[in-house]
């Protein structure tokens, strides 16, 4: 049950999301064109409209735990069709940053894990080593043999080299500094 009392704090979360994302969610008509457009909206993933509805309703916890923004691949389809030009992937970033700052546990740990491994790889070497990141992910999620068959095929065809899966590679100190500088500022 949502119990509203008219306190100004009720809208604090909404305004924070609006400010961080630069998107005017108060314009939202709740027409649902975004969720209809969204490739990942499904029975289980609510889609942008309901996420916005939750933010507008001040349902902060529910919004931060909503799977939608974890799933968001920033395809931009909803943004292009939205009658009030709300860009949802900007909202997703804002929610991710708020969740991170407030220590909310990722509701989609596997997506989170992959993205984290990915960024670690960037931080370490400046460029991401895809296969390495994928292998690490598969190991960490206890599916070491996921996509083994196509992987082997690709190796067989010479498309990829098994060496690329091994850890290692050079480093890019400049990129590492970008990470640390931005971390400092926060």
């Amino acid at each position: 049950m949502l119990r509203l009392t008219g306190q100004p704090t009720e809208r604090a979360f909404l305004h924070k999301v609006m400010e961080m994302s630069g998107q005017d969610l108060l314009d939202c008509l709740q027409c649902g064109k975004c969720s209809g457009s969204c490739p990942i909206a499904s029975e289980t993933v609510a889609g942008p409209r309901r996420l916005i509805a939750r933010i507008l309703a001040g349902m902060k916890d529910e919004a931060l735990e909503d799977a939608t923004w974890w799933y968001c691949v920033a395809c931009g389809t909803c943004a292009g069709r939205c009658p009030v030009e709300i860009n949802m992937y900007e909202v997703a970033t804002a929610l991710c940053e708020i969740a991170e700052a407030e220590g909310v546990k990722p509701s989609e740990p596997d997506i989170h894990l992959f993205e984290e491994l990915f960024l670690k790889s960037v931080q370490k070497t400046g460029r991401v080593r895809e296969l390495q990141a994928v292998m690490q992910y598969n190991l960490r999620t206890f599916h070491p043999f996921k996509d083994m068959v196509p992987g082997m095929k690709l190796i067989f065809k010479g498309a990829i080299s098994p060496k690329e899966m091994l850890p290692g590679g050079g480093s890019d100190p400049k990129v590492a500094r970008i990470f640390s500088r931005l971390a400092e500022k926060e």
């Binding site: 920033a74 992937y89 970033t93 940053e97 991170e100």
Partner: peptide, 13 residues
């Protein structure tokens, strides 16, 4: 270097 791709876009603007 890497552009940050979707993980950076998602996690840290």
């Amino acid at each position: 270097s890497c552009c940050g791709s979707s993980p950076a876009l998602k996690m840290n603007k």
